[in-house]
């Protein structure tokens, strides 16, 4: 039987959800009997092939995030929004109080300890969105895994359910927004 293909990515996130994913520890060995990874920071594959499950960490803060999210939605049968940022914007959404210009000026011109003040303008840099948005504002999301980050046990729980062909559910004790 062919293995279940999983893709993962971190958009406007901190990779904390990926670190928590790795907190499944030795259970990852068993998991790898049943799954293989496609596009993911763990494989460094740059584009997503058709997959069964896509795990998306982080919200949307720039144009590239939106492209990557659309690629994931197109290629993944099941898309899971992982963590607070993917679900409601999280910590990056704190910039929604300010304009993009104010953020750039604070970070690159007026911030404490800024050397050689200059707002980056390389054409290869993705443009920032005016506000940070959660995933479900742009694509359909199949499941949500809340937490900052969701505990390793929660990843194990949702993946075990999906691998068993069950509708995933989260034990109440694992439901946290922090």
């Amino acid at each position: 039987m062919s293995k279940i293909r999983i893709a993962t990515t971190s958009l406007a996130g901190c990779f904390g959800c990926h670190m928590s994913f790795l907190d499944m520890d030795e259970r990852l060995v068993d998991l790898l009997e049943h799954v293989e990874f496609d596009r993911s920071p763990l494989t460094d594959i740059k584009h997503c092939q058709p997959c069964d499950i896509g795990l998306v960490e982080g919200g949307l803060c720039n144009a590239e995030n939106v492209h990557v999210l659309r690629e994931f939605r197109q290629q993944c049968k099941i898309l899971i929004a992982v963590g607070a940022c993917a679900i409601n914007g999280g910590v990056p959404a704190m910039r929604n109080h300010y304009t993009v210009q104010e953020c750039l000026e604070e970070a690159y011109l007026n911030g404490v300890g800024v050397d050689n003040p200059m707002i980056p303008s390389d054409p290869e840099l993705p443009l920032l969105l005016s506000k940070v948005h959660p995933l479900h504002e742009v694509v359909r999301v199949d499941y949500y895994l809340p937490g900052c980050p969701p505990p390793g046990d929660a990843f194990f729980s949702i993946l075990s359910d999906l691998l068993a062909g069950k509708e995933p559910s989260l034990p109440k004790a694992m439901l946290h927004y922090d």
Binding site: A81, I87, A93, H133, E137, V141, L145, P146, L170
Partner: peptide, 9 residues
């Protein structure tokens, strides 16, 4: 699990 609606911010 989620806010369901688009956030107001």
């Amino acid at each position: 699990l989620d806010g369901h609606f688009p956030p107001f911010y």
